[in-house]
Amino acid sequence: MPVIAPTHYSFRSFDRQWIIPDARLINRPNPELWDSYSAKQLFLTALERVSPRSGPSITFTGLIPDLDHYHGRGGRAHPLWRDASAKVPNIPPQLLGALAEVYGHAVSAEDLMAYLAAVMAHPAFTARFQEDLVQPGLRVPLTADPALFSEAAALGREVIWLHSYGERFADLTAGRPKVPPRMAENARPFVPEGGGIPGAPEPLPDTMEYDATKNRLHVGKGFVDNVSPEMWNYEVSGKQVVWHWFSYRRLDRTRPQIGDKRPPSPLDKIQPDHWLAEYTSDLINLLNVLGRLIALEPRQADLMKLILTAELIKVDHLKTALGVGSN
């Protein structure tokens, strides 16, 4: 029987891990997601039955997402494309046509996805609409201003490029190479001399601590410098991204069992016996992505304010275009 090679997948927002793509091993695999997957696919993930509390209200990934990808407690994945060849968008063509009429130019599925990223994938959106989000289900303000839509779509492409670690919406002319994003050289996190996180024969580290006085992130006996408090505290609806990233790679990965839930599988105990060099690379990549996203947040917040004070497309207009009743 042939060996099925492991593949990268998105376990949680900004946390990429490995999986064996065999339906006999995966809990509740979604054939539609796997069948429509390709190097052009993009997934938006968000909560469905509850509302986000903080951080970005949506996140993106270019890899197959876990069912609980958004923050580990429920959610839903929305693919950009319905097919692996990326020719059939997962957005009603009537909606794209209606937007094209408003803006006076063609609107692609990628444009609309990028607009959502610019407007919704930042903490200011979640904070601004906290009262409205009491009722689960995300709603987005759609600008009627062609210039604001274009500005948001351009900004959102950078957001998605960051969320996907440079693998989606890469564009060299726009400064988005198809490589893991990096902050400016004087601002980017780095492992200084003497700070390397030791591998074998040292066991996996079990502690991660942050020293705000030195902007230093300690991982076991090693550390990373130039880590801002904002990077350390970055969260997706209550889930502190950097800490939880480490919690799945530390020595003791056990978690308290809640109620009568089924106990963890013994397979959970299978892990490397030492810190891997790729873990350090992945951590540096994560910190750079978070740092650049944090730097974009003021632009996203300002753009959202402009959109909310300008004319918006009315819901009834969209319902008419989609052939949906107004009631």
Rank of each mutant, 00 (worst) to 15 (best):
T280H: 11
D211E: 15
Q240G: 05
L290D: 04
K261A: 14
W275K: 03
V242R: 06
V241S: 04
V227A: 03
K261L: 08
I270D: 05
H218Y: 10
P264H: 01
Y248M: 12
L283P: 06
G220P: 06
P205K: 10
G222Q: 05
E230G: 08
K261Q: 08
L251M: 15
G291E: 12
P205V: 07
N285V: 05
V242K: 05
L286T: 01
T254Q: 11
L276T: 09
G291K: 11
E209S: 10
P264R: 06
P264T: 02
V236R: 00
K214R: 12
Q257D: 02
D211Y: 11
W243V: 11
S247D: 12
V242A: 00
T207N: 09
W245T: 04
N285K: 12
Q257N: 12
S247Y: 13
D282F: 06
E235G: 02
K239S: 02
L217M: 14
P266I: 11
W245P: 06
N215S: 12
L286S: 00
N285M: 09
E278V: 15
R253W: 08
K214H: 01
K261H: 08
K239H: 03
F223Y: 13
A212Q: 15
Y210R: 11
A212K: 11
M208R: 05
D273E: 14
H274I: 11
R262S: 09
Q271V: 13
S228D: 00
L286H: 07
P205M: 07
R262P: 03
W245D: 05
M208W: 13
W232T: 05
D268N: 11
K239I: 01
I284F: 04
R253L: 07
S228Q: 01
D268P: 00
R255Q: 06
E230S: 06
M231Q: 15
Q271A: 14
D206R: 14
G222I: 13
V224Y: 04
A212W: 10
W232G: 04
I258N: 03
T207D: 14
D211R: 09
V224E: 05
W243D: 09
Y279S: 15
V242G: 02
P229K: 01
K214L: 15
K221G: 09
R253M: 12
L290R: 13
W232V: 12
H218R: 12
K239W: 00
V241Q: 02
E235N: 11
D260L: 02
N288L: 09
P229C: 06
G222Y: 02
I270Y: 09
I270W: 07
S247V: 02
N288F: 10
R255C: 02
V219Q: 05
D268I: 14
L267D: 13
P264D: 03
P256L: 04
I284N: 11
K214A: 13
S247Q: 08
D268R: 14
P256W: 02
K214Y: 07
N215C: 05
K269T: 15
D282Y: 07
R253Y: 08
P266Y: 04
V224M: 05
S228R: 12
K214N: 11
P229T: 06
V227F: 10
L276I: 10
R216E: 04
N215E: 11
